[in-house]
Nucleic acid binder design. Sequence first.
DNA 1: ATCTAATCGAGACGGTACGTCGAGTCTTCCC
DNA 2: GGGAAGACTCGACGTACCGTCTCGATTAGAT
Lengths: 197, 197, 197, 197
Amino acid sequence: MTEEVTPRGRGRPRDEDTRARILSAALQILEDQSFATATTDAIAEKAGASKATIYRWWPNKSAVMVEALREAVAQELPFPDTGSLGEDIRLQLRNFIRLLTGRRGRIFKAFVAAAQNDSEVSDAFRSVWVRPRRMAAKAGLERHRGVTLRNEIDLELLMDILYGPLYYRLLVGHAPLTEKYVDTLAELVLRSITKEA
Amino acid sequence: MTEEVTPRGRGRPRDEDTRARILSAALQILEDQSFATATTDAIAEKAGASKATIYRWWPNKSAVMVEALREAVAQELPFPDTGSLGEDIRLQLRNFIRLLTGRRGRIFKAFVAAAQNDSEVSDAFRSVWVRPRRMAAKAGLERHRGVTLRNEIDLELLMDILYGPLYYRLLVGHAPLTEKYVDTLAELVLRSITKEA
Amino acid sequence: MTEEVTPRGRGRPRDEDTRARILSAALQILEDQSFATATTDAIAEKAGASKATIYRWWPNKSAVMVEALREAVAQELPFPDTGSLGEDIRLQLRNFIRLLTGRRGRIFKAFVAAAQNDSEVSDAFRSVWVRPRRMAAKAGLERHRGVTLRNEIDLELLMDILYGPLYYRLLVGHAPLTEKYVDTLAELVLRSITKEA
Amino acid sequence: MTEEVTPRGRGRPRDEDTRARILSAALQILEDQSFATATTDAIAEKAGASKATIYRWWPNKSAVMVEALREAVAQELPFPDTGSLGEDIRLQLRNFIRLLTGRRGRIFKAFVAAAQNDSEVSDAFRSVWVRPRRMAAKAGLERHRGVTLRNEIDLELLMDILYGPLYYRLLVGHAPLTEKYVDTLAELVLRSITKEA
DNA sequence: ATCTAATCGAGACGGTACGTCGAGTCTTCCC
DNA sequence: GGGAAGACTCGACGTACCGTCTCGATTAGAT
């Protein structure tokens, strides 16, 4: 996306390696520590870059984080396609909690937290992470509509019912995110969305 | 905790009015403005108190907020009891989104945000707000078990399915929280939890 | 000057010791090193104070320096009164070069330098140092007017002729400031300002 | 120094026009604006050159400034020769204050300032500007020695008495540099250096 | 007519100081 | 002894300038 032609302006080109190191450092600090510990100085030092370079390319700390998230997101799993609605959902939810309970989980918590105080982060989080994921997931589910998935089901609502509980547990932390939990969740939800034979 | 009887030491007793003004100021700033403006200085000024007084009675800013939340929570609505499972759920969800979309909504966002970086806030938020609410709601739903509610339904999971989507929309903000939305949500969930006639 | 009554406002009073330590640290750094090395961080550290405290009381680094100068100035020698015009001048000039060639000399160089780029420093330097010194010196010389000092001599000009060469050598550094030099200077100037017997 | 013959290496030769534009830009910025705005970036931009070019030919900013000064100096007035000691002095001082009070005055202030923190600038300022001027002036005055100028007068001291007050007023700014002022100054000094008839 | 070496403009980069702001602590006086 | 006022330390923030660096484009002398 975005052409990538860039007619090669005159000066010294941006050092892509530095950019990568900054984003990687940002992610790592987010993973290892809290959002609060992730100072720009710390990122700069870990990346072997200077603070000035960071602020040349990103308007503030949040923007760096958002871009770091974008990088990380690129590696994530696609929506599964097993042919079975139930299996698709179960797999997708399992993949998701594996992500959330792993080191990356901290990142999501941090982002949702930051988004509450900063509408730029909020917008970015939605457009970079939430929306693409939901689109992919919806496309995957759409394949089942009319087959095993009831015609009248609103996929937006379905997304919320599937992912809402996971975000809820992640952020509020009143109970753990286990495979067993998502399986039960999937089972319950399936009950209300599948066509009766 | 609490009672404390206060053996009435020598000096001037704690000024309860000051305490109330501080908590009220904290809440109001959270409601009216951003979390960023909710500095301890701002709270102290709005309350006509001094920062020292705040830190005499609470260990840090989060603790003040948590206690403010506790005060606010005391006024909230009890779980409805209409006799109908569906009606109970619908009403409860409607009450909840009315709360979230009102001025108090900002408070919840702020708390979930703060909870991600501060386990004390996290614990407090759960024990002061989440757990009591869930207990009450579960008790309300329990009344319908075996009647219209299927026996094998795990109420913990049911809570997550009902509230998770609302928290999700509140925190991620990808779509608005409307009455129509919660009605559809309730309808879908009911489908999978009600006893077949 | 400036009343000094200060009806003792309510809060914690300014820590005069900290103020003194900051000014002393500023002076010392100026003496030991260059104006450039005198970073606010360095001053703060040496003073055992925090940068915030410095910026609470002074708008910028220059202002700290100016006040430091004011403190230092308070200790300087008064204009001598020997009864002899020539002796008064010689003594005063000798005192002055002793100051300039001592550790304090760097401070003056630094101030004149800073004054060229900053009109606040310039104003302050004049009002805190130059003007009081000139006033005192003029008062001292005025005692001789009509006695050994010719009536028509403009004391402003005389001040410039006496001190200008010293500032000149201090700042340009084309030749050293020695006692012999000021004695010769005094002798030459005296020739043109004394009443012929 | 210099000739250098330049064995005419292979590559593209240095662009003399660029060099001139850089020096001119440096001077102009010093004249028009403050020393603070005379950043290397500003010079480069005004000269239509690049920072790299500046640093290829000069080791640092001060060196550029010094060379710019050298260029500017080349255009200055020679010492007058009217035949009269008093007239020579008066004219020379008038020329000098015309220079100092004109746009070039800022340059001198800037240089004396810079010289206090940088011995290279200090050395350069003396060798490029101060010494040649003093040499010329001394040669001019020497012509009068034994005629109207007293034999025993030390010309170094005389230079200081004539120029010191002007530098003093320029740098400290406690009073303006006017023609009337230099005339009075000249008159007073003449009194002590002329042979009694 | 190439090839080659040095120059130039543009502008990214690391480093270092600046001046600001919020959290949490401490000190004084008043009640 | 409690409380208001407010000074204090600590540490992160985002900005600016210096001097270095890497590009691609020029410009000549050497081949």
